[in-house]
Design a protein around this nucleic acid. Structure first.
Length: 849
RNA sequence: GGGCGCUUAGCUCAGUUGGCUAGAGCAUCUGCUUUACACGCAGAGGGUCGGGGGUUCGAGCCCCUCAGCGCCCACCA
């Protein structure tokens, strides 16, 4: 025997993977229709988590399946420099050494982080291999590879040339902790209870005061106006008059702007253009001064001496206290409002004015929206498309600048003598450049990583360079987590269309989050993280894949289930043992031959496997992974192992046995690549690899023979059921009359039912098997029969209930008239069957009584 | 403020366009040293599909409504 007694996944998996890789099986074949998936690049210096295991399981199932369909498959792996994530980790390292980013130049930092990442790189790639991904490693792209930078720069230039890039002072989401601006997607919005203070601003041109409402009193030092709604009768006469800004010696004016909601608060709003996006816009309309009172480090500047240097939080308390001391607080209420937090540090985000690079997003967004409406991309789950359309409609201009050294430098330079004169240039390694006698200073900021990852599909396929892989653009499928719909999918569609004129992929499959066994989000702090590598070590890679795919539907957050991984492990073991049985029967020197079905079961199993092959195909092509896997699992375990193999022990057909095993391995391969290939290679019946062999083709069989086996199967099931119901553990004899199906399969029936004997008789006795439709009796004593009476009565009652159900349905004229004719005919037939059963049961009971 | 999703067996979940007696894995119970497999074999029990209403010949699936849970998006002070 070549196959060992037990299957130990860890003994085989690494070798099998190495063999695939050595034989170049992962590279696109160049033959057949292209099929491509680009892997969402995992963090280059991180470890894979369970979500990655799900991601690559789904992707690899598709890749392997389509490869077996004879397609030219490119599964392109990637590694992400994970700009901000990695930067945060690195900055922590620096802090441990008592240093900060300000001790180094951009180049120094960049190369230090590069080395830091490089030390751990390869880790996650090894882990992907352990998961069995059939990715084309030679085509791996790192997000800071030269070709990425080149493409990103040229996209930036195209956008710039076409007037879609602008640089300007805008309110940005600023992380005072990490000293960088964020895009909208990096801000966590939380609904909170906050205090709304009513503050009196004394009037200078008239007697009295105006009361404004604010949740952020500390920003009042940056006020440059108070705004009211132009139609608000209460304040109409005050527009244009002057106010004293409390705690300062500044004067501000009352202005009118439609932005103000007269019904909120007091209907009068302080306007702080430097610290609120709405106020910023009001300020632009009214040409107001922008006074920055919170610095980029989060402390107060440009404020009266007593508040200088305070954190914004402290300044709020002290400002309120100072106002109270001057009796200017006119009241306070508690309101629910949303506050933006830094998703990384958990600290409040400060809206601050900063000179940044922005992308005018709406032209791109609308084009993307149109492509979606035109159905150029399909979605699983389908409902997510609408969500995306809505998102695109509401997008604001995209802040592309990050003040982080670990990223792609923005290729722009500023005229040292004219701050408004910016030029595009890729010489980002030089701080100053000379162009036609003018000196330009480089931009120090880098791109938001989503700007480069948004171009991933056409970068990885070298589409713009018309490279070797360009036939794989647009990608066939983009598979990723549902949480990336807006931040990544949307950006890929927008930038893909903009740069290439085509959608980046034809189908989007979104999976949900893998939760812990109790349905909680996994997190390091909760300590409920499941490490995929540990699961592989204990149960095997196939088990993890089978377990994580099972019973999981698209877009749904679902719990991880160890029980399902165990079930997967058991399945791999089952396959192994099927193979061991086959090997034992065929011997080591078996040479594969085209089989010829002989026994009824032979025809039946061919029929089952044909159906399963088509079924799995149909389900995979509609992205129903769990159902496809289930179908594969049951045909192999139930049909092949429990019926075919058992029957084959009595009715041997070696060539068919080999064919059945081959077919099982093929059907199972996308779901359990390691154990299937291990068996294929160990038996060595073929010279090729299982992973590159063709998906099972339909095999001819005799329909009548197959259905006869089904009848036999029903009889056997009936015998097993009835004997298990009979009292005691006696072995019974089956008696039959004029039944060639029974007569021809005596040994098979006996073995599969553990009957003592099967005899042909002229005069019958005992218990007739009521549901088998056969002339068959179990030879039981009158006593046993009597004890069995209640069982029969129960069955009769159940049968009567079902009959009543069918009769009611058929008595319903509307049903007979309106339901499809086949359905009605089917109901009639079922009714007849149940009536026959009832009659048989009544007959039996009559005999007993 | 807008949007999405979930509620089905003890547990974790499937259930394509409405179609017959609602499934799986695990768990439970009863048998079983059967020419591969106890990570196994043969059986069994277990569900008023969250509540209510509606459409339909027919609803787990469609519509309305109520309740509970979860997620995402959003620059109203």
């Amino acid at each position: 025997m070549r196959l060992a007694k037990t299957y130990e996944p860890n003994q085989y998996e690494p070798n099998i993977y190495a063999m695939w890789e050595e034989k170049g099986a992962f590279s696109p074949s160049g033959v057949g229709d292209p099929f491509s998936i680009v892997m969402p690049p995992p963090n280059a210096n991180g470890n894979l988590h369970i979500g990655h295991a799900l991601t690559v399981a789904l992707e690899d199932i598709l890749a392997r399946y389509h490869r077996m369909q004879g397609k030219d498959v490119a599964y392109i792996p990637g590694a992400d420099h994970a700009g901000f994530e990695t930067w945060v980790v690195y900055e922590r390292e620096l802090a441990k050494e008592g240093r900060s980013r300000f001790d180094f130049s951009r180049e120094q930092l960049y190369s230090q982080v590069w080395n830091f990442v490089d030390k751990q790189r390869g880790n996650m790639e090894l882990q992907l291999r352990a998961l069995g991904v059939s990715a084309s490693w030679k085509d791996l792209v790192f997000t800071l590879d030269e070709k990425v930078i080149t493409t990103v720069n040229s996209t930036f230039k195209k956008l710039w040339d076409e007037g879609l890039i602008y640089r300007g002072e805008r309110i940005v989401n600023y992380s005072t902790k990490y000293q960088t601006s964020y895009s909208d997607i990096e801000v966590d919005h939380k609904v909170e209870k906050g205090t709304l203070w009513m503050i009196a601003y004394p009037m200078l041109d008239k007697i009295g005061e105006i009361v404004i409402a604010t949740t952020r009193p500390e920003t009042m030092f940056g006020d440059s106006a108070v705004a009211v709604n132009p139609n608000d009768e209460r304040y109409k006469d005050l527009i244009g008059t002057r106010l004293q800004l409390p705690l300062t010696d500044r004067e501000i004016t009352i202005i009118a702007d439609d932005y103000v909601d007269a019904s909120f608060g007091t209907g009068a709003v302080k306007i702080t253009p430097a610290h609120d996006p709405n106020d910023f816009e009001v300020g632009q309309r009214h040409n107001l001064e922008r006074i920055q009172v919170i610095d980029f480090d989060g402390t107060m500047i440009n404020v009266p001496q007593q508040f200088k240097g305070l954190t914004a939080e402290d300044a709020r308390k002290r400002t309120v206290a100072a106002l109270e001391a001057q009796e200017l607080i006119r009241g306070k209420t508690t309101i629910e409002h949303t506050v933006g937090y830094d998703y990384k540090s958990g600290l409040p985000i400060q809206p601050l004015i900063k000179d940044q690079w922005f992308l005018k997003i709406q032209p791109l967004a609308q084009r993307a929206k149109q492509a979606l409406l035109d159905g150029e991309i399909s979605f699983t789950p389908a409902s997510r498309k609408q969500v995306l359309v809505q998102y695109l409609d509401n997008l604001h201009d995209w802040n592309l600048s990050r003040q982080i050294p670990w990223g792609i430098p923005i290729p722009a330079f500023q005229n040292v003598n004219n701050p408004d004169d910016w030029i595009f240039d890729e010489r980002v390694d030089e701080k100053l450049i000379d162009v036609n006698g003018t000196t330009y200073r480089r931009e120090e900021d880098t791109f938001d990583t989503w700007f480069s990852s948004g171009q991933w599909p056409f970068i990885t396929t070298d589409f713009m360079q018309n490279g070797d892989l360009s036939r794989f653009y647009p990608n066939s499928v983009m598979e990723t987590g549902g949480d990336l719909l807006d931040r990544w999918i949307a950006r890929m569609i927008m930038l893909g269309l903009y740069v290439t004129g085509q959608v980046p992929f034809r189908h989007v499959y979104l999976h949900g989050m893998v939760l812990d066994e109790k349905g909680q989000k996994m997190s390091k702090s909760k300590g409920n993280v499941i490490n995929p590598m540990e699961t592989i070590a204990s149960h095997g890679s196939d088990a993890l894949r089978l377990g994580i795919v099972a019973s999981r539907s698209a877009g749904q957050n679902q719990a991880f289930s160890v029980a399902k991984v165990v079930a997967g492990r058991n399945f791999a073991n089952k396959l192994w043992n099927i193979a061991r049985f086959v090997e034992d029967k065929l011997g080591d020197s078996y040479r594969f031959r085209t089989p010829e079905p002989k026994a009824l079961v032979d025809h039946w199993i061919i029929s089952e496997l044909n159906t399963a092959g088509a079924d799995i195909q149909q389900r995979l092509e509609s992205y129903r992974f769990a159902e496809a896997s289930d179908s594969m699992y049951h045909v192999i375990w139930d049909s092949v192992a429990d019926w075919f193999i058992e029957a084959n022990k009595q009715q041997e057909n070696p060539d068919l046995l080999a064919w059945v095993l081959d077919t099982c391995l093929k059907l199972a391969h996308p779901f359990a690549p390691f154990v299937t290939e291990t068996i294929w290679q160990t038996l060595a019946w073929h010279n090729d690899l299982l992973m590159t062999t063709h998906w099972p083709r339909e095999f001819a069989f005799n329909d009548i023979a197959a259905s006869e086996f089904n009848q036999l199967k029903n009889l056997i099931t009936e015998i097993r059921f009835v004997t298990s119901e009979l009292p005691g553990n006696d072995k019974y004899t089956l008696l039959y009359q004029n039944d060639s199906l029974v007569a021809d399969n005596v040994i098979l029936i006996q073995k599969l039912t553990k009957l003592q004997a099967i005899q042909h008789v002229d005069r019958t006795r005992g218990l007739r098997l009521p549901n088998s439709g056969r002339e068959a009796w179990l030879d039981v004593s009158a006593e046993t029969l009597y004890e069995h009476q209640t069982n029969l009565e129960t069955r009769l009652a159940e049968t009567h209930a079902i009959i009543a159900n069918f009769e009611a349905r058929l008595a319903n004229k509307s049903y007979v008239d309106k339901a499809p004719a086949e359905l009605v005919a089917e109901t009639k037939q079922q009714l007849a069957e149940k009536q026959a059963l009832a009659q048989a049961l009544v007959g039996e009971l009559a005999v007993i009584r």
